[in-house]
Amino acid sequence: MGSQSRRDFLKTAGLLGGTMVGLDVKDARATPKNVLTDERKGVLVDTTVCIGCRRCEIACKEAHDLPVGPLEQYDDRSVLEVFRRPDTHALTVINQYEQDSLQQALDVKVQCMHCDHPACVSACIVGAFSKQENGAVIWDQSRCIGCRYCMVACPFQVPAFEYDKALQPRIMKCDFCYDRQMDGKLPACVEACPVEALTFGKRYDLLEEAHRRIDENKDRYVNHVYGEKEVGGTAWLYLSPVEFEKIDFPDVGTEPVPGATEPIQHALFKFFIPPVSLYALLGGIMWLGKNNKNEEEE
């Protein structure tokens, strides 16, 4: 009887165990390495050039079918005195910073940084976020389940959620005008900027350009291109005359954010070896104990 039940045990374990391993995980959708081509695009934001006219905000809203409101309100510069973040009504905003060391206030445009190793892409439970070959990080409305883990993960706290909607709330953030770019057009903000504070181009060309500007105007800029190394590099790059923490750029380090969790995930699920061995170990303990019991009874 002992060996019979043992054989049953093994047979059933094998059968059912096989089903569990068969429950394989779908292909990874996060940043495949080859997406990061040398051709990928970016934008260089020169905060010393920006005049805070908010034309980019208007253009952005028009391009994304968001209500623009009366145009006069964009000339009211008191708006700039209150610190703002991109949200579901404005995917990009301008903030103004008074600096004692400068003659005039500094205007800083903020939006999604379009990270090279985006935390939001790695985090999203259903792969609704993806990094595109042109550098854009975009969101797929048809997949999202509204868990907001992308918002927890983003180091710059960019994705915004439509909390006021009971049905189909969207995750909203700058999409680098992905559709316009596919039509061969410039991002709306870049096209709208009257003073060329925003430069669109290949990310590597922009980095060269940024360092050239720093080298040629040592008094004008701090020697730091924000986004060159931050969280492993971002498509949007910034030049500033003051240290970046003074204009509310967080110190996020240079390691890609997904680097903290993806290795753990992959180690756990590489061919399911750890779960399956744990299963085998526990099964072994159970089986040995069962034998002992059987022998005692016999």
Partner: peptide, 13 residues
Amino acid sequence: HVPIMGNSNSVLF
């Protein structure tokens, strides 16, 4: 969507 579109890099998944 979770079981059919899951992103295996995601801890939440």
